[in-house]
Computed example of a mutant assay.
Amino acid sequence: MRKTNVAASENAYYETDVSNATDAGAVASSREIEIASGSEIASTADGGTGVAIDLNSDMGESFGRWKLGDDEALLQVVSSANVACGFHAGDPSVMLRTLEYAASRGVVVGTHVAYRDLAGFGRRHVDAAPAELRADVMYQIAALEGVARSVGAAVRYVKPHGALYNRIVRDEVQAQAVVDAIRSVDDSLAILTQPGAVVGQVAEAEGLRVFHEAFADRAYNADGTLVSRRLPGAVITDPAEVAARVLRMVQCHEVEAIDGSIVALHADSVCVHGDSPFAVAMARAVRARLEAEAIVIRSFAPSMSDSAESDSQSAVTGAWMSVSGESDNQTLKPGPQMTDSAESDNQSAKTGVQLSVSPESDTQAARGRGLTCVS
């Protein structure tokens, strides 16, 4: 018998129409959401398994003549993009160029807000006063929204970057400042963070939509935390292996930990780091593997041009994937988060993750949809 651990988050928001469902795997309507798994149930008209997933990437992080990542290539693979707002990376010209290409590809955009730390790429902790941090985040959101509007795009969510992301996992004061900034500029925006993060709890209390994420290319400990980057095997670089892990996360809502145990994983997002030489190949491999299983790739946050029905579906939390265009050794959007400092590693482990339904229930629900789980 395999050893099983539970480390997961429940959906922050979801719709239900299950009064006529006869069992856990039944779909009562084309817009039903499977609450137990954290996966969005797509319309059967999509011709797939009924599971819809978003591919998301951090981009717009070049600066002047310095280029980071292959945004154009990734924008041909993903369906949502987190765009840097000039504080940790990016500049006005890069923002405009990224948004123009994203709009031409029909890719939904979100703001990638950060500390004011260009020299440190947003990886250094800043003890900003709440009022200052609130103003900085407001400035970044407003700037990206304005540029996006000029190219016919609409910002749909906020994803904090690097050290700020990690800080507000546990710091309620800075978390409140970020949430206040979002609500002050545009309270229709959702926020993306890791399971169990303080900022997620604050955001929910303030009425914002919250999405959580896990990681495709990082090894997990048995308790659901990420293996420190200092340890062998912490980062997975083989595209085929990463694609297989993502498929298992999506179909069975679990991941194999570094010690061989099984961790139940109920995230709304799966992040794949995207700045390595294998970044684009990895993203393409993941998408190809999912589509081979008839899993639909689409954004969790529809654009303004979508129908009212699609817009209402944007409030639904579904499993979705993220492809990060940031440095692999940087503090990125973990769930749980890991950084390069032992102190931050320990703090991440302490924050932990929220418990969800049992992995047995997940497996039964997945099999009820006709999906094959890895035993």
Rank of each mutant, 00 (worst) to 15 (best):
S9G: 01
A12Q: 01
Y14E: 13
T16S: 15
S19G: 06
R31K: 13
I41R: 03
I41A: 02
S43N: 14
A52N: 08
D54G: 15
D58N: 15
M59K: 07
S62D: 10
W66A: 15
D71A: 10
D71Q: 12
A73Y: 09
L75Q: 04
F87L: 03
H88N: 08
L96N: 13
T98D: 06
V108F: 03
Y115E: 08
A119E: 15
E132V: 15
Q140F: 04
A143K: 00
G146S: 01
V151Q: 08
V151E: 11
G152P: 11
V158F: 05
H161Q: 13
A163W: 08
A163L: 12
Y165H: 08
R167L: 13
E172G: 11
A181L: 06
V185I: 14
D186M: 00
L189P: 01
I191E: 10
I191F: 08
Q194P: 06
V202L: 01
E206D: 10
G207I: 10
R209V: 14
L231W: 04
V242Y: 09
R248L: 08
I258F: 05
F278K: 13
A294F: 01
V296P: 03
R298W: 05
R298E: 14
S303I: 08
S303H: 05
S305F: 07
D311F: 04
Q313Y: 11
V316E: 02
A319E: 03
L332V: 09
P334C: 07
G335S: 05
Q337S: 13
S344F: 00
Q347N: 13
Q347I: 08
Q347E: 14
G352S: 02
